[in-house]
Amino acid sequence: MTVGIVLVSHSPAVAGSVAEMAAELAGPSVAIRPAGGTDDGRFGTSIELIAAAVNSADSGDGVCVIMDMGSSVLTAKTLLEDLADEDDAPAVRLADAPFTEGAVAAAVLASTGQDLEAVAVSAESAWSMRKL
């Protein structure tokens, strides 16, 4: 069992490609689900797509959600409020992380079987990984 990861972007292609890249680096044990764009394929955010991705990514150990910006963040926060009202909702932690780097960091740590909080902290620690 591993923590699942959901990637929320305004762009379906960005969410899908970053999910593909993170999966390549993390290996097959981690469920990484993209939730990009609106439910009719436009740029934007869909609470229904994010909710479906969360449910799909959860294997019982919870789901780390990483957002790009703006409405992605606001919509993910709204979903979190909605889930708080549900009895059997998956454990969800929003990570305040850079999108690509955070996704890779979270996916790699999730592949080692660490818990939800550790995976989210790993994503957030990507802020401090200097490149130059």
């Binding site: 609106t38 439910d39 955010t45 609470i47 703006g70 409405s71 606001l74 919509t75 709204t78």
Partner: peptide
């Protein structure tokens, strides 16, 4: 919330 698509969706919703 479900259908707006931008930041206005979660905010107004």
């Amino acid at each position: 919330v479900a259908k707006t698509g931008g930041a206005a969706g979660p905010l107004y919703g």
